[in-house]
Design a binder for these strands. Structure first.
Lengths: 198, 198, 198, 198
DNA sequence: GATGAATGAGCGTTCATTCAT
DNA sequence: AATGAATGAACGCTCATTCAT
């Protein structure tokens, strides 16, 4: 009774922005374009977000939270270290490839924009690296990985995965390359690169 | 003979743009700023470049040529396959880290921009991958690398290196990570990832 | 009886606006800011005032009434003509300097704004001049003032006082000038200017 | 031969702005409105003025220079002190009444805008007061004026004249008052107010 | 070969105001 | 009596680009 059938405009704006991001890129995305795409006036956006930064930061946070949740779930669910490591890597790739819009603002936005991202929220973004680092540490103890400084290696792993995702969502890959094969190869390369010789 | 000693304004514009790119970033670069920095009028740029795209495409091409030259030099100079592979990887990292302005427009520009990049020039960009692929192939024949499809693996290697470069020039790396150690680790990871178990 | 104890929102809005006026100035005052400061919604203002003009006109009227009351009180309380004249002048200066927010909207708003001010309310504004004019007339009869057309001279007195107030509340006075001395001098100048030579 | 028949747009913008100022007031004057009134695009204004401030400051400076020139001319041309004083006062009134647009930005603009007016140019604005003060000083020495602190009295005179001008150009004067008579009366009042009793 | 003059489109943002509830 | 949702118009300003010379 008395259902509020009205749309949640805040949600609509976030989703619209997300979709436009992947089509147009942050640099070409304006408040007006977003408004036009939602069907609402530009002014309305400001009812839900203080300014452009606020809107994008909200989106970034959503992205971090989603990736974080996935990582944490894997961390708790998978005891086998090598398996867990592989799953984390695959989850990162999947997240990026399935949510290119989130990926774009989370990891491809220009540093100057990130500079305005609240510092405390940034910490959340780093937690993903911590999960990777811990898994590496466990792997070293189990004699599976040959890794000297897990913290640095976690960043290296991240860099490698990031390269794979970003080339793909930027359509930089030669069209003659099979995408699935590329992803699988990259995953294998990442894992092989940390493993201790048998 | 008979040529005037006047400056090559086209050259001046390209160099100025390159310098501004590294100082201000692509997003903050306007034709007017470039003009002001050259000391010539904004209109003059249009004598040498059809539009902004044309100017940047010329710069991108220069970048591809520079990287290409480096790769070819290494290819011809280094007979040892493993050494050559390592040198190619390091050269890629060095190129990106020492020429962030070129790297930005070559590999980090939004696809929407690259869509307008002349298809025939794109071939040059791919030659670098060919050099990598051939080295991988030779390495497989020499029993050094465990790689099934060299063409795909070349892209994977590229992706990994690209991730390393782009995280660094976007200042995404945790400040507590030593930069040199990170680069060395990434290089080791890339090489280890293709090597056959001893 | 039967009236609720609820606040008189109209009153609250008027007072809030007055306070904001002195803090932020007319130019920086928006309906939204007023609403926020009252704690009520912006829409609520429109329950009590037709529009922004209406709100400010109400405030202007209050100002005129306050000044009027002061003038009338002096008029009835002070029999000595010269003393009364001096008191009226001082009261005008005091009113302006102590209520710069009222003064601004009463006497400094651009004519374009005042054009929309209801003509009938303007009459109240003129009563102050009548008090001045009558005092001048009495002064002439008593041989104290040398003034031909009291109505015109009343306006002249007003102009002089207005200049003093408006320069001060607009902070136009050279900072090296002592403010109290300036006000006293202006008052003396105004009075001296109407007096008949001894 | 080769006459440049083209308009001086900078001049056109300044004049248009001047005229609009008196019609609409500073608060309601936008770059767009100015542009529309000139018949040129809004962008064109920025070819001649860095920003809105720059445009208005240029206008303010013109005003100060004009008033200054008039004052200096009178100062040098008129030996008789009382006559000179009267001429200065009348010149101020005339300037304001004949150039209400200049007067508006010079003396009626809100202090916050003036705060951005270059300090060194502000000095020029004060020279007018110096001329007044010196004339007062000379008058005191000649036994004509009864004035203790000429610097303060100069400001007082200015305030009085300013009140007269600003009430008139703001159309605050009762329409039943004859304007010429009002101006003459104000002038007489100002002069009488400084004179020593005969 | 090079320029000065000019512009339309667009930017992020704020405003007073309306309307349905 | 009071509100939340929404908007059209306007703001100052920057941009890539054109055109006549």
């Amino acid at each position: 009774m008395g259902t509020t059938a009205s749309v949640d405009l805040r949600r609509v704006i976030l989703d619209t922005t997300r979709h436009l991001l992947v089509k147009e890129g942050y640099a070409n995305l304006s408040m007006r374009k977003i408004a036009r795409a939602t069907g609402y006036s530009a002014t309305s956006i400001y009812l839900y977000f203080r300014d452009k930064d606020d809107l994008f930061h909200a989106l970034i946070e959503e992205g971090y939270e989603a990736l974080n949740a996935t990582f944490k779930a894997i961390h708790h669910a998978t005891a086998d270290v090598l398996d867990r490591f592989r799953q984390l890597c695959r989850a990162y790739l999947d997240f990026g490839l399935q949510n290119p819009e989130y990926y774009e603002i989370m990891f491809l936005l220009h540093p100057e924009h990130m500079a305005r991202y609240p510092a405390d929220k940034f910490r959340k973004a780093r937690q993903n690296l911590d999960v990777l680092a811990q898994t590496l540490t466990e792997g070293v103890q189990a004699g599976l990985f040959k890794v000297d400084n897990p913290r640095v290696w976690a960043s290296t792993i991240w860099a490698s995965l990031h390269g794979t995702v970003s080339l793909m969502i930027a359509h930089r890959l030669d069209i003659r390359i099979d995408k699935d094969e590329f992803v699988e190869t990259s995953l294998r390369h990442v894992v092989q690169g940390v493993q201790a010789p048998a």
